[in-house]
Structures are given as structure tokens and as C-alpha cells.
Design a binder for these strands. Structure first.
Length: 470
RNA sequence: GGUGGCAUAGCCAAGUGGUAAGGCAUGGGUCUGCAACACCCUGAUCGCCGGUUCGACUCCGGUUGCCACCUCCA
């Protein structure tokens, strides 16, 4: 039985979607005003991994994730780069697509943009006004938090505390307009002449930051969705306000399971733009790192746990992944010379046992640490079996298949590395093979060192030389 | 101040009452002409104090340190 930790209840709960076999899932996507950093990518990777697991378990997942393509940050970036809001959004949406492609994140079922839902957002606000949940002042529309019961249920905050904190930082304008310091904007008037604004019954303006997610959920997934995901920092105020809006609008449960991912830390601090301790995926991928190593680094830690980022840790993870690559490659190599035959009962049983463990781990709120342990157990088994003369092609294929499947859930799908040899390397390898045949080990060892300098690790086996990129 | 979370070997980390999974690194061994790969072996009493219990990393109380949210933020 799959269990997930619900931020709303602070407990692991049995997971059952509204409709058997189908899951509606929404992930809060980025504001497209800049390149994403490792922390942003973690959220995308974590929930992509969860999605892949759910799909492997047979669910059909309708996965919606948005782009916020308006707002102060987009405007400010536009001024900095001399671009319009639209141009900024397009540029960084494209960059997001490229970064996430390299991290092998599956495209969302739908990727809506806020500006595509202006009409619906205005209608949404109108209805909240009609219902008396909101009020309009000077072209701004605010949501009355006090008129929504259990406003703090998701964030587990204390309403009095929240009010006290909010009161202490109200701007002048807010002070005049807001009836209560905890009220939040559904619509903000915009009168600056050179800034994009949308028309509304309350005059030109822009939607409040939480509105788009409520509206897109409503439009694309329905009144009640199964999973709503995002970073833990979104719990308050973003998700709190979304929930308040949507449930006020529909008068029914908005989200069945709230899932929140932990941060990527640098020196025990949250990676963030404001602290300046961030590394963008865009820059990182320019280096010679293996994108899959980065993906594995982000995916192998349970989504709720904090990840400490450092290049040393990234390297360590790469070493782990390389071991898995080698196990897989070994299976393929062995398969080429193994006798044909069905999978043996022993291998079948061992693999079945491992699969049970794998599922048990992932069913426990996506315990990826334990799932990875199972993958390593499988790799060890694969390494042993491929060295046995009795191994059949059926055995090897069975093991390779499982390794591929489970790593695939983690988003690691390219398990073999295509090595393109330079003419020099080819010549050296041929020369070395000849030297070895002549038992001229001094020459062959020298050539091995030479090849290592060119980035090629050469190994000898009974079948001859093998090589891989360093 | 309020709220949520974390603290296990050099590093990453599993484990919620019965004498501490796994990976990386280290050291030793087998294999190898040598090496690499692979395989085998090798390490911690679980932040601290107290309590409950036949027995606690695991429950309870306290304490220390760290992080996050309460303002935009994955």
C-alpha cells in the first residue's frame, strides 16, 4: 500500500486517488525570469521521479505544471535585459525546457502559462466578490482570510501570531486598503504606463500571485485534485492562499495530498538567489559533468529531506552511478557470449525478491534511499551472475531489464556510454593489442598510460581489451 | 517569539523496542604478466542528561546544536 506524507495532516497517509487508476497532480512551476538553480531543479527532479514511479505502478498521471510568466520579477528582468515581459518569459521558459530536458524530466501533460488564463482569473475573482469572500478597494481586490475557516490548517501557523507578524510589515498602501493584515491580494491595480496590465472590472491590473494556480488547477484538473506538490517554502503563503481561494470558490476539498520537497543546502544554508550561494543548471551543464550524475544526485535522496550540495558530494554520487553503469555494461558484454537459454529459477527468484523490496521502499513515501540500496544489491547480483559460466542469456537479460527499469524510474535511462575513439586512440589500441599478443608488456603498459592521458581507461579481460571514458 | 524539521562510522545514509542495511572512501585478500574492473573480508553503540522497560538508536521528559517557514523563494 502506497503511503505518502501529507503536509496537511503531518502524517503518512494511505494513498488512494479519487478515480481508480488515475491521478491528477499539480506541481508549482517556476517564474520564468532567470535560469533555474540546483534547488529549483531538485523540486522538478523529485516530483518527476515520483511521477515515474506512479506511472510504473500503473497509474495514469495527469501532470500539470505551470510557468508564471508575469509579475514584478519578470518586469524587473525585462528592464535589466531590455526585453519585454513576454520576451523574458519566452527566453527563460526555453531555458527551463532545455535544462529539464538534460535532466531527463518528462514534459508535463500540460504546461500552462498564467497569461493564458486572464479571463478565467478575472471570473474567479468576480465570483469570490459575489460570495462576499473578497472586497475591492481602489482597484485592488483582497481576499478576507478571516472569512475562510481553518486558514492556517495547511501551514500549521497560529492565526494570532500570523496576524501580529503581518501587521508589523504592512506597507502604507496596504495599511489603508486591507481590512485585515493577513488578507492577501487577488488583483493588484497597475497604473504605471510602461508596464503590461490587463483590464478588469476593477480597472487595469495584474492577478495576485496565488490566483493562477487555483485557476489552472480548476481549468485543467478539476475542483479536487489528488496531489499538489512544490517546495516546502511554498506551504505558506502560496499554498495556504491557493487552498483558501479554491475551497472558498468551490466549497469542497481542493487537494487530497499535499507533498512538499526539502531544500538543497550549501554549507547548511538554503540555496537561494538572495544569498547568492546558488549554482544554475545552465552553468553546471556547461562543465564536463554527467547530467545523469546530477540527476541521480538529486533523485536518490528522499524528496522531503534536505540535500547538501557540494562538488565533492556530486563527485561521490557520480562514482556510485558509474558502478551501476559498469554492472549494466558488463551484462551486455556477457550476454554477447552467453549461451541462449531461459532465465534460471534462481535468478528469477532473487530478482523477484529484490523487486518486492524495491516496491516496499518506494511505497513508503518514496523512500528512495532504500530503493537505491536495492538497486545496488541488484548490481552486485548482476556482477556475480555475469561472471558465472552457467549464466544464460535469459539470466543476463532479466537482470539488465530490471536495472534499466529501476534506474529509469530515477530518470537514468542512458546506461551505456557511446565512446567515439579518435584515430590516434584507435591506432594506439591496435598497437597495444599487438604488443600484448607478442607479450611485450613493457610497450603495452606504456601505451595504456598514454591512453589514460587521452581520457581512456583500458582494461584487459580474457576476451581482450575493453575501454571506457575516464 | 510561533510553527515544522534535522542530529547514526571519514563522507552519504537505512533502521521507530530485542543486541546497528546499503553505497562511497580506507585497509587486506582473490583474480591479473602488472593494473583496472569484479568478487570476498574489514569500521560506529546511534548529539547530551534523565526516565519507562527484562531490554531503547527506536517510547517519555529535559537539554544542546543546526536548518526552514512566519516577506518573493523549489
Amino acid at each position: 500500500m502506497l503511503q505518502v506524507y501529507n503536509t496537511y495532516s503531518l502524517e503518512k497517509e494511505d494513498f488512494a486517488p479519487q478515480e481508480a487508476g488515475k491521478i491528477t497532480m499539480y506541481l508549482c512551476g517556476p517564474t520564468v525570469y532567470n535560469y533555474i538553480h540546483i534547488g529549483n531543479a531538485r523540486s522538478a527532479v523529485a516530483f518527476d521521479t515520483i511521477r515515474r514511479y506512479l506511472e510504473w505502478r500503473g497509474y495514469e498521471v495527469n501532470f500539470v505544471s505551470n510557468f508564471t510568466d508575469l509579475g514584478d520579477k519578470v518586469i524587473a528582468q525585462g528592464e535589466k535585459e531590455g526585453l519585454t515581459e513576454q520576451e523574458v518569459a519566452d527566453k527563460y521558459a526555453a531555458a527551463f525546457a532545455e535544462d529539464t530536458r538534460q535532466l531527463n524530466i518528462k514534459p508535463a501533460t500540460s504546461r500552462p502559462r498564467a497569461t493564458e488564463y486572464m479571463k478565467e482569473m478575472v471570473e474567479f475573482v468576480e465570483r469570490l466578490l459575489e460570495q462576499g469572500q473578497a472586497y475591492e478597494v481602489n482597484g485592488n481586490v483582497y481576499f478576507s482570510t478571516k472569512k475562510f475557516k481553518n486558514y492556517t490548517a495547511l501551514s500549521h501557523q497560529n492565526m494570532e501570531q500570523l496576524e501580529e507578524n503581518a501587521a508589523g510589515r504592512l506597507g502604507e498602501e496596504d495599511q489603508e486598503d486591507k481590512q485585515d493584515p493577513t488578507d492577501f491580494a487577488l488583483w493588484k491595480s497597475e497604473s504605471r504606463p510602461d508596464v503590461v496590465a490587463w483590464s478588469s472590472p476593477w480597472g487595469p491590473g495584474r492577478p495576485g500571485w496565488h490566483l493562477e494556480c487555483s485557476v489552472m488547477n480548476d481549468q485543467l484538473l478539476g475542483e479536487t485534485i489528488d496531489i499538489h506538490a512544490g517546495g516546502i517554502d511554498l506551504t505558506f503563503p502560496h499554498h495556504t492562499n491557493e487552498l483558501a481561494q479554491s475551497e472558498s470558490y468551490h466549497h469542497r476539498q481542493f487537494v487530497r495530498y499535499w507533498l512538499h520537497n526539502g531544500f538543497v543546502n550549501v554549507n547548511d544554508e538554503k540555496m537561494s538567489k538572495s544569498l547568492g550561494n546558488f549554482v544554475t543548471i545552465h552553468d553546471l551543464l556547461k562543465t564536463d559533468i554527467d547530467p545523469q550524475g546530477l540527476r541521480f544526485f538529486l533523485a536518490k535522496t528522499n524528496y522531503r529531506r534536505a540535500i547538501s550540495y557540494s562538488s565533492d558530494r556530486l563527485d561521490q554520487t557520480q562514482g556510485e552511478l558509474d558502478r551501476l553503469y559498469r554492472a549494466y555494461q558488463g551484462l551486455l558484454d556477457a550476454n554477447a557470449v552467453a549461451p541462449a537459454g531461459q532465465v534460471s529459477e534462481q535468478v528469477q527468484n532473487q530478482v523477484a525478491e529484490l523487486e518486492e523490496s524495491f516496491i516496499e521502499a518506494m511505497d513508503d513515501d518514496f523512500n528512495t534511499e532504500n530503493a537505491v540500496t536495492v538497486i545496488f544489491d541488484l548490481a552486485t547480483l548482476a556482477n556475480k551472475v555475469q561472471n558465472q559460466e552457467t549464466a544464460t542469456q535469459g539470466d543476463l537479460e532479466c537482470l539488465a531489464n530490471r536495472l534499466q527499469t529501476w534506474l529509469g524510474i530515477f530518470g537514468i535511462e542512458q546506461l551505456t556510454k557511446e565512446v567515439v575513439l579518435t584515430p590516434d586512440q584507435e591506432a594506439l589500441l591496435a598497437e597495444r593489442a599487438a604488443a600484448r599478443a607478442a607479450k611485450d608488456f613493457q610497450t603495452s603498459d606504456a601505451i595504456r598510460d598514454q591512453l589514460l592521458i587521452t581520457g581512456l581507461v583500458v582494461r584487459d579481460s580474457p576476451q581482450g581489451q575493453t575501454w571506457e571514458l575516464k
